[in-house]
Computed example of a mutant assay.
Amino acid sequence: MVEPIELYWKCGLANPHTSHCLGSGQIMISCMGDPSGNAKGGFVLLDGETFEVISNWEHQGEAAPFGYDFWYQPRHNVMISTEWGAPKALVNGFNPAHVQEGLYGSALNIWDWTTHKKLQRLDLGEEGAIPLEVRFLHEPSAAEGYVGCALNSTVFRFYKTAEGDWAAEKVISIPNKKVEGWMLPEMPGLITDILISLDDRYLYFSNWLHGDIRQYDITDRRNPQLVGQVFLGGSIVRDGPIRVLEDPENQEQPRPCIIKGKRIAGSPQMLQLSLDGRRLYTTTSLYSGWDKQFYPDMIREGSVMMQINVDTVDGGLALNEDFLVDFGKEPDGPVLAHELRYPGGDCTSDIWL
Rank of each mutant, 00 (worst) to 15 (best):
M1P: 12
M1F: 06
W9I: 06
S19K: 02
G23T: 06
G25R: 02
Q26C: 08
C31E: 03
D34N: 15
A39P: 08
E49Y: 05
T50E: 05
P74S: 09
H76W: 09
H76R: 12
S81K: 02
E83D: 02
P87R: 10
N92C: 04
P96Q: 01
Q100I: 01
Q100H: 12
G105P: 11
S106C: 13
E126T: 13
G128F: 11
A129F: 05
I130G: 04
V134P: 00
Y146S: 03
Y146M: 05
C149D: 10
S153W: 00
V155W: 04
V155D: 07
A162V: 09
P175S: 02
P175W: 11
E180I: 13
E180S: 13
L190A: 14
L190Q: 11
I191N: 05
L195T: 14
I196F: 11
I196D: 00
D199A: 09
D200A: 05
S206P: 10
Q215F: 01
D217I: 09
N223H: 14
F231W: 15
P248I: 01
P254D: 10
K262F: 09
Q269T: 14
L273W: 06
G277T: 10
L280A: 09
Y281D: 04
T283P: 02
T283G: 05
S285P: 12
Q293P: 12
T312D: 01
G316P: 12
A318P: 01
L319C: 10
F323S: 04
V325G: 05
G328Q: 12
D332L: 13
P334N: 03
P334T: 10
L336V: 05
E339F: 04
P343I: 09
I351T: 15
L353H: 14
